[in-house]
Design a protein around this nucleic acid. Sequence first.
DNA 1: AATATTTGACCGAG
DNA 2: CTCGGTCAAATATT
Length: 306
Amino acid sequence: MENLGLDRRKAIKELIRGHKFASQLREAINQSSKESGVGDHSAVTIPFAEDLLGKVLRSFTNTLLILDNNNKNYESEVVSQLQIGDTSSWKPTQSEDSQESCKSSSIIKERRGCYKRRRTSQTWEKESEAPIEDGHQWRKYGQKVILHAKHPRNYYRCTHKPDQHCQATKQVQKIHDDPPLYRTTYYGTHTCRNLLNPEIILDYGCGSGRLISFDNKLPTKQDVPFFSSSNSVKKECKEEEIQDHHWSHHQYQSSLCHDDYLISDELAFDSCGHLSLSSPLESHYSDVISEVLCDSVELDSFEPFK
DNA sequence: AATATTTGACCGAG
DNA sequence: CTCGGTCAAATATT
C-alpha cells in the first residue's frame, strides 16, 4: 500500500511535468499564431496542433484526476501545479435572454407541467464533421423536423437534470451531408458536477476495481463516455444512422478520432489560455477540480473578444 | 429490473 | 394557424 502510494505520487509528478511542457508548447503555438499573418499555412497547422495539444492536456489532466482521486495527501501539491489550457474553438453566439415567465395566472395546466422556456444565459455553437463527443452525458428528449431543413433536429438534455437539476441542453442537427457536417448548439451551462462519472473503474491489478466517484453515487448501468468515449459517439451516430442510413466512412473515422473526454470543450479560458487551479480548498479536491474542469469556468463572465 | 430512445401530443410564441 | 421546443407514454436497450 505504501509503495503504491509512492508510485502514484511519482506518476503524478511526472504527469505534472508533462502537463507543464504541453502547456508551454501550447503557449508557443499561440505566440506564433499571433505573430504570423492571417492567410498562411498556419491557419491550417495551428488549429490542428492546438487540437492535439488540447487532447494531450486533457489526457494529462484526466490521468492526474484519476490518480489523485483517492489520494488526498498531495492534493495541494497537484492543484497548485496544475494549469489547464484549452483549444476550444467554440464561438459564442447570441446570448439569448431568458423568458422564464410561465404564465403566473391560473392556467389549466392539468395535463402537463408548465412549458417554461429555458433561461439560457449562454449559447454555443459548433460545427463538426461528426457528432461531438464532449464528455458530457446527454439524454435525447426530442426530435423535430425543421422547416426547410434536410435533416431533423435532435434535442438533448443533460442526463443529470433530474438528480442534479442540471439545465444544460444541446441541439444537434446535420446540416450538410456531402462532407458531413453537424451543427451542435449548446444552451446553458452544466451545473452537474460529475463529469468523472461514478463508474470509472481503475483496476490496479489487485482484484477489486476502484470507483471514482464524486458523490458516492452507486454505479448505474449507463455507459460512461470517458476513456471509451466511443460509447456515446456510437450512440449519437446510431441515431443518425437510423435517420439517414448512411454513416459514411469519413464519419466513422472522425468518430474514432474523437478522443476528447472529461473536460468539455466548452471550457472557455482567457486569451492566454490559462486557468489556474490554485485554490486548494481543503474540503473536496475533486469538487474543486470538477468545478474548474466542468462547469465553473464561468461562461457567464467569459469575454470572447477580449 | 433500471435506463435510454422514439415519437406524437402538447404548449407558447409569432 | 404554423413552427419549434418540450413532455411523456410506449418502446427499446442493457
